[in-house]
Design a protein around this nucleic acid. Structure first.
Lengths: 233, 233
DNA sequence: GACTTTATTAAGTATGCACATATTAATAAT
DNA sequence: ATTATTAATATGTGCATACTTAATAAAGTC
């Protein structure tokens, strides 16, 4: 057998993780110092540090200067979701992607949208409604507001051809995003465009993005019945 | 002014990030080698590496050995969600937490549950239904299956007193988790226990956990109307 | 030309060392 | 007793260096 002469930080991470899982280090416990673990396992402190960083980031331990490293007493389920642009999502399922612009108008910001964007005063904004289709069937109905102060370029885009979703992702990077999920009853427009029997439950993905302090856009994406967002870690 | 004599990896990260945001490095572009950036900015390669690691992890760039570092052509919205144990979630909102066991029975695994757990044959499992309350109002209705082969300890727990949610989190660490969100119409039990007017839309958080290859538990947590899960990055 | 072998490249990792920084604990000053 | 000062400590960070590894390109072979 070829015992690796050097431990990689992932080996160290797995060693520590195992000890946490099997309660050698129980929830709330303080772990030995990085340096002691390094000595015990026979590697450099840097290597232990790297492993601990990872464990800390995945929420298994908490580290504090001088305080040391503790096993989290109240583990949380941590999951990372990647939300791709809709075209990509559809095409990756091997389905045909289509897109229809429903409406495009300048309007004053309504109160709830102001709240989402975190602004105090209504301003003229671009209000876009559109439908994304997969294999000719409704997939996602999006209701979007774009702040034309931060993103004037959107006004020159032919939204009949290219979705605001796509244009923004490719042309307007953001520095901060807020994502939330909730459920709504199909009704009014969303029910009509998603062609669902009324009274079905729909998942809404609401996203708001900023560049620095300035809001860019906020969108409610209402998914067709049966839609799920998933993450596995 | 006191210009910092040394650049921190976060400074480097912000520099690179800014260049990506302002299209100095456009989507799809290949960035200079770590070493060249280090030289340009006047720091060690390690420091650039650390910064790049972070950018890579947040999905802004993609790195490949020999291939170099590229700005992601199709940025995805990446969001990390922390799902705490329900008690904690309620108490952090400053509300009173309560819990009621609804039922607890040994049953053969039904087909859909087998699919979630990834097992081929039905086995006797513990099927638990319970209700979490916030300020005496229904908060989350959970429908859970626990594999007693991997987790026999659950059989000795008085689930009248302690929720399976809590016991599992504190006593059964997992190595893999699958989380998904979707929407359902309130009906049957969930509607009854959540005390909603029928025909409202409810968010379901479905979680399945494994330890190594062995399934531990799968749970559908049906949240009361108005519930949202949120993450900001 | 099609295939295999070899060299090159750029990121990935490990290490030792020095110093920075946040926190806690001990101590001195009021 | 209370507050301010100082020391001790564990993690955080930066750097120089050497080596590893995956992917690619170039060279050589059939």
């Amino acid at each position: 057998m070829t015992a690796p002469l050097r431990l990689s930080w992932m080996d160290v991470r797995e060693t520590i993780r195992t000890r946490i899982l099997d309660r050698t280090y129980a929830p709330g416990d303080r772990l030995p110092r990085d340096e002691d673990i390094a000595q015990e396992l026979g590697c450099a402190r840097t290597t232990v540090h790297r492993a601990m960083q990872d464990l800390s980031q995945m929420g298994l331990v908490e580290r504090k200067r001088k305080g040391g490293t503790h096993v989290r007493a109240d583990p949380v389920t941590r999951a990372t979701f990647d939300i791709p642009i809709t075209r990509r999502e559809v095409e990756q399922q091997g389905r045909k992607y289509d897109y229809q612009l429903i409406s495009r108008e300048m309007e004053e910001t309504p109160i709830p949208v102001m709240a989402r964007l975190g602004i105090q005063q209504p301003v003229p904004m671009l209000h876009v409604k559109a439908l994304h289709l997969a294999d000719n069937r409704p997939f996602i109905f999006e209701d979007r507001w774009v702040d034309t102060r931060s993103t004037p370029g959107i006004l020159d885009v032919d939204l009949q051809v290219q979705s605001a979703n796509e244009w923004l992702v490719h042309n307007k990077p953001y520095s901060r995003v807020d994502v939330r999920f909730y459920a709504v009853i199909a009704q009014g427009e969303s029910a009509r465009y998603l062609a669902t029997s009324a009274e079905s439950a729909l998942l809404v993905i609401e996203r708001t993005t900023w560049i620095g302090q300035d809001p860019i856009t906020t969108v409610q994406s209402v998914a067709a019945p049966g839609y799920q967002v998933a993450a596995q870690n």
